[in-house]
Each structure stands twice: as C-alpha cells, then as structure tokens.
Nucleic acid binder design. Structure first.
Length: 479
RNA sequence: CGGGGCGUAGCGCAGACCGGUAGCGCACCGCGUUUGGGACGCGGGGGUCGGCGGUUCAAGUCCGCCCGCCCCGACCA
C-alpha cells in the first residue's frame, strides 16, 4: 500500500477519488480498458448493499431469477428507441465454437428484451399478472470514458422487470421501487437523494417515463444513483406480451424496469470521503469496528490480548461486524492510517494503559483527529459501541444533507443560473421544452437532473426562455 | 475519430541529446532493533528496456513500421 499523502479533494477531486478506491483496495484496474476488478473489500461492501436491497425487494413481493447473458441482436431491434439508444454501446459476439454465428449475439446492456420474450411465453391471462422478478448480475455497455465503479464496460447491478394488467398498477410499481431505492440510499448509504422524473431527453431508451434518484457529490456534481422506468406497452407490443383480461379481451401488458448498480459505492466515496480516505456508513461497512491491540513486548502483549479477545467477543455478540488487526509487521500508527483509508466507522485501541484503567480508546472515523477520540470504560462497552454506530450513521446523513442543501440555489435570472451551476445545483422553473434544456446544456454543461416528485404550485416563467413554466427542475452538471 | 503525451523491475521514475557492464525510490524476502499516529539499520531477490525490422564491431539510446496506454475533445451516463 502506498504511504504517500492522498491528493486532496480540493486540489484534484477526481484523482482523490481514484486513489481512495485503489488504496482502500476496493477495486483495481483490469487488463482490458474500462474494466475493473472488485477486490474483496469492495465486494464485501457490495454484498452488504445487495442484502439490504434484496430484503426490501422481497418485502415488496419480488422474487429473484437469472436470465441469459447473450441476447439475439434481433431482439434489441424490435423496440425502435431501445436499439437507437443502445446500439452505440453494444458488445457483439459474432463467433462461437470456432465458427461464425448465424445471428450475432449481444452481450446484454440491460435485459428488457430477453425478459420481454420470456414474459410473452409466460403470460396468457390476467391471472398470470403481475410478474415481479428481479435479477442480480452484470451487464456490458461499451462506454468511451470510464471511471472505477462509476462507469465501467461491465458493471454489477440488479435489474427488476415487472409486468402488470393495468397502466396504473405499473406506474405505482415504478414509484414504489423508486421509493425503495431512496429509502436504501438515504438510510443505509447515508446519501441524501432527490426523487424525480427525467426529462424526455434524459429518459431510458424505450421508456414512457423514467424516474431517478439524484445525489450531490462532494464536488457538487450530480450523480444518478438509481432509476425506475414505466415502459407503458412499448416492450409488450414489441414482444407480444398479451393476456386475456377479466372481460375476455386481449390486451398488452404494462411493464416496468428498475436498476441500481455498484455505482452507489462511488456515490458513498464522493459523498462521505475526506482527505484521510474513505468514510463508510456503519450500516454497510464491511467492518464496523476495527480493534488495534497495542503492546511493546511479550509482557504487555500477554496482558493486552485477553482483553482484546474479550471485547471482540462481546462486540460480535452484540451483532457488530468487527476486525481485530493483529498484524505484527506494522506499527499501530500505520494501522490507524490504513483503517482510516478504508473508512471503518469506529476504531478501538486497546493498550497497556487501557488494561490498567479498564478502558478503551475509541476513535470516530466521521470526526477526524482529537475531536473524534474518547476513552470509554470496558464496562457496558458493547452497548456504547452499538449506540455510537447509530449516531455515526445519523450524523453522516445529516452532514451530507446540510452540504447538499447549502449548494442548491434558486436563480433569479438565467445569468444567475449559469453562475449557480458552476458550483452547485439550480432549482428553477422550466417550460418543458427540450430546446430550452439543450440551450442550458450548451451554455453551461448542466442538464436537467430531474423534475422532483415533490412539486409546488408552479407559477411564473421558464428561467431560460421566459415562456410559462410547467414544473420546477434541478439543473446541474452531472457524472 | 481529431489534438497532445507516454511505454525501462509490481508501482513511480532516471538513463536517450552524445551508442560501450541497466540504475534509483517505494514495494517484496532475510536478520536484528522497534511498536499509543504512516519505524530504522544491514543484507538480498527481481529486467525478452512495448513489438518487429534496419544501421553498427556494439542499440534502452540512432532510423522505419506496428502495437498499447493516458489526458483533452466528440460519444455516454
């Protein structure tokens, strides 16, 4: 591991991000451009995220399944907008088993088409609906500019695909799952998000309406942290997903899809991280507590280790994910820095002085330096630690929310908007016209991140063109 | 696909102008001393110098072709 100082967030945010991901050993570059390896520490974080989400999916009635990686090229071509949107970024397999394939296969960029094909086979009656299936897996999109976790050629995610008998039911599902994402990202990842609808130019290729949760990163740029789409009958028509309704009428089903990827790991890094490294929310951290034993010789070691053993047992018993760093070849100082880089929420130091005083030293990762350090009694330690983890979780969300809110402004003029989006988000009226949106992008590089679900009574005129406004929108530069 | 840069040990680089025993720092291995905020000393291992061809007694270095990567655009989210 490198012991050089990190680049700072202020000096070079994107290099700071890369270095944290690499040094915390969450990921590494793979030999193919744009591909990455999720290392055990990063994967453990992803596993915790999967569990937290999967539990919510099951609670809302969904089941898991697995669909194939290869999709016939012709499937994507069945939905016009879909193929137009995805064709520039497809990986295509033309050969297999040493010979040229009759029809090229696409490595799935998303699975609407192959799942639509299967749903057409499975759905005959309104009694077969709804179908509520989720899949955990990876997809491939041939992106030009890649970043670890944020945009890679192959990325891990989950994609939910549902089919319903009515438009209303499908729309409800779309918003329900957006709400599930918001709940997870806010309460588990401690990343505040705004739920909203995508403008036409930003919506998913083939959807009627796309919804999104948008988060603000430490450099004030926006990151889409999850999306949920209402497909209307577009894919049902393309794949003949038809059923007989309760009146014996043949109808096309209404479908949805929703996805959230390991990009949210990147969102956590860029929301919570500091110049010491990563800061992970206790609910998702692979290790919530690291214990560093401190001793100089065998006498001290034999006094300290039994206490470490007892404390670690107690914490495990209280349900904490803990790690005892018993490495002999590095110094305590090195370990402190190492675990701070990895973002472990709480560090316990147990040394000869603590053994003597029946105490432990406790350091909060979210409050660096002396301010976050305290000494607590070994008595009732587990309950104090559990409580502290909860406090950290809450305070991380509060801090991130305060940061975000302090960088959202309502412009008073178009000139004002162009200034605001240089270092924050603009919350403003919009007329709904795509040309206006394009003009803003051309002038400022900012796009409409979403039209928030939470809309006030909108009066007045569009910030860009002066025509009557139809909704409030967030404008920001995005990842 | 345009504009710029770079390929020498796992990583970061020097050596090239001016051809002559392939080096430095970190990492790694061994021994010893250290250990409450990134320890130190001594010893050691590791290289088709991106590839192919040419010039030369001799090429990391000069010449030609090719390949790959990075940054800025375009594209995407």
């Amino acid at each position: 591991m490198s012991t050089d100082k990190l680049p700072t967030r202020e000096d070079n945010f994107s290099e700071w991000y890369n270095q944290i991901v690499l040094r915390a050993e969450m990921a590494d570059y793979a030999p193919v451009r744009g591909c990455m390896v999720a290392r055990p520490y990063g994967w453990a974080l992803w596993e915790n995220m999967q569990q937290a989400l999967d539990r919510r999916f099951k609670e809302t009635g969904h089941v898991n399944a697995a669909f194939p990686l290869f999709i016939p090229m012709s499937f994507l071509e069945k939905e016009k907008e879909h193929i137009e949107g995805f064709s520039p970024e497809l990986a295509v397999v033309t050969h297999g088993g040493g010979s040229k394939l009759e029809e090229p296969l696409v490595v799935r960029p998303t699975s609407e088409t192959i799942i639509g094909y299967m749903y057409a086979k499975w759905i005959k009656s309104y009694r077969d609906l709804p179908i509520l299936i989720n899949q955990w897996g990876s997809v491939v999109r041939w992106e030009m500019r890649t970043r670890l976790f944020l945009r890679t050629l192959e990325f891990y995610w989950q994609e939910g695909h549902t089919a319903h008998a009515t438009a209303e039911e499908a729309q409800e599902e779309t918003l329900r799952m957006l709400g599930v994402y918001a709940d997870f990202v806010i309460n588990d990842a401690a990343v505040p998000v705004i739920q909203g609808v995508k403008s036409a130019s930003e919506k998913f290729a083939g959807a009627v309406q796309s919804t999104t949760i948008e988060a603000m990163m430490g450099d004030r740029r926006a990151l889409q942290a999850g999306t949920s789409h209402f497909m209307g009958q577009n894919f049902a028509k393309a794949f003949d997903i038809q059923f007989l309704d309760w009146n014996n009428q043949l109808q096309h089903a209404w479908t949805t899809s929703w996805g959230l990827s390991w990009r949210v790991i990147g969102a956590m890094v860029m929301t919570h991280g500091d110049n010491q490294g990563l800061v992970l929310p206790p609910k998702l951290a692979p290790f919530q507590v690291v214990i560093v034993p401190i001793y100089r010789d065998d006498t001290e070691k034999s006094a300290v280790l039994p206490v470490v053993e007892r404390v670690s047992k107690e914490l495990k018993g209280a349900g904490c994910r803990i790690r005892v760093d018993d490495r002999e070849e590095v110094t305590p100082g090195f370990k402190f820095n190492d675990w701070e880089m990895r973002g472990v929420p709480l560090r316990l130091e147990i040394g000869p002085k603590d053994v003597q005083k029946n105490s432990v030293a406790l350091a909060r990762r979210d409050i660096p330096g002396k301010a976050g350090k305290s000494f607590i009694s070994q008595e009732g330690l587990a309950s104090q630690v559990v409580q502290m983890l909860d406090t950290i979780q809450q305070s991380m969300l509060e801090r991130a929310t305060a940061f975000r809110d302090s960088h959202i402004h309502e412009p008073t003029s178009y000139a004002d908007l162009t200034e605001i989006v240089k270092d924050g988000w603009a919350y403003s009226r919009w007329c709904g016209d795509a040309d206006c949106e394009a003009k803003v992008k051309e002038d400022t590089k900012a796009t409409i991140r979403c039209l928030p679900l939470d809309q006030p009574e909108v009066q007045g005129v569009c910030i860009q063109c002066g025509k009557p406004a139809t909704s409030m929108a967030y404008f920001a530069r995005a990842y």
